[in-house]
Amino acid sequence: MLKENVLTFKELQLNIKNKTAEINGEALKLNGKQFGLLEYLVNNKNAILTKEQIFDRIWGFESDTSTTVVEVYASNLRKNLKRFGYDHYIKTFRGLGYMLEDHGEGNV
């Protein structure tokens, strides 16, 4: 496995090439959009990403009505990470967006 294809955040490892994710060697069941969101968050950890930025990144266009679907992705991603306690690292900024934090406390 080539190192450039792997993104890490603490124990979380994302394989960009195969679109797979694992924590402590255990695979996460993520669909394409959730993986895309997680990859985007890991790439920009400790930075706030707005919902519009996230939608634009995942779908490649802008829409006035995009925010709710991003919320759905985020909530699903959280559910998948909860098992490992990693959902606390995703901080929600209500009405704005999300941030993946090294010392996460969850929602604001």
Partner: peptide
């Protein structure tokens, strides 16, 4: 800190998007 005042930024950003659209 920015994270304490993000509502102001969120509203400004949303208005900026409006303007840009």
């Amino acid at each position: 800190k920015i994270s304490d005042r993000f509502e102001n930024i969120a509203q400004s950003l949303s208005e900026t998007r409006r303007l840009s659209k």
